[in-house]
Amino acid sequence: MASKEREYINKMRRQYRSPIEWLKDVETRYGADAEQKLSYKEAQDIYSESIGWAIWNDIAMQDFWAEECGYGHQWNEDNPKPIIQKVLATLNTMADHLRRGRELGLSEMEQQVVDTLWGWVPHNYEDNYVACAREVSKAIVRLLPADTEIRSEEGYALYYNKVLGEVKKLAEKHDVDFDTSGYNLSVGYLYEWLSNEYGLVSEDACDWEE
């Protein structure tokens, strides 16, 4: 039964705060001078929670966080200023990106599909990508097996192939860059992200929660 998996995934998705919520939280606590007042520990929390949020919601965003504030940067407790600035700047960029998506009237899922198709965040929400994402998200919902069906790896492979075929058609229709003659990062993102929509969870994950 898929309802258990769906419940688990929804729980994981809501477990972390999104960049918009984090930014609101930081602004209410510190106002304009967040850069001076934010502590090293809090910057760590923002970074790791945002990565967690991105893993369950928007995979492209995960790579952006890792690129901007990942290991390559100086996480040094004695000199925390640079990394705190970096974390805040990234948080602002991400919240701004999500807000712009909302202003365009995109649902959460549609916005995530745009990010997946574009293969990178932030971006300017090109018209053809938005139009394509709207149709793709409809197809994703339409092709989803019924909740009564048991979720399995094989079932996911079938579902993924169906969606991929649909995405290819729609990408061609809207002139979206979706070349699959080699490894395309968008395809990798789609494969990872779609498993959440489908409800593919490792066997013991749901039981472990109880």
Binding site: I51, I55, I59, A60, Q62, D63, W65, A66, G70, Y71, G72, Y183, L185, G188, Y189, Y191, E192
Partner: peptide
């Protein structure tokens, strides 16, 4: 740590 510890990158990126 150097950039080689790419744990925080997504699976798709690591595979790439």
């Amino acid at each position: 740590n150097t950039r080689h510890d790419s744990d925080m990158f997504s699976l798709a990126m690591q595979r790439r």
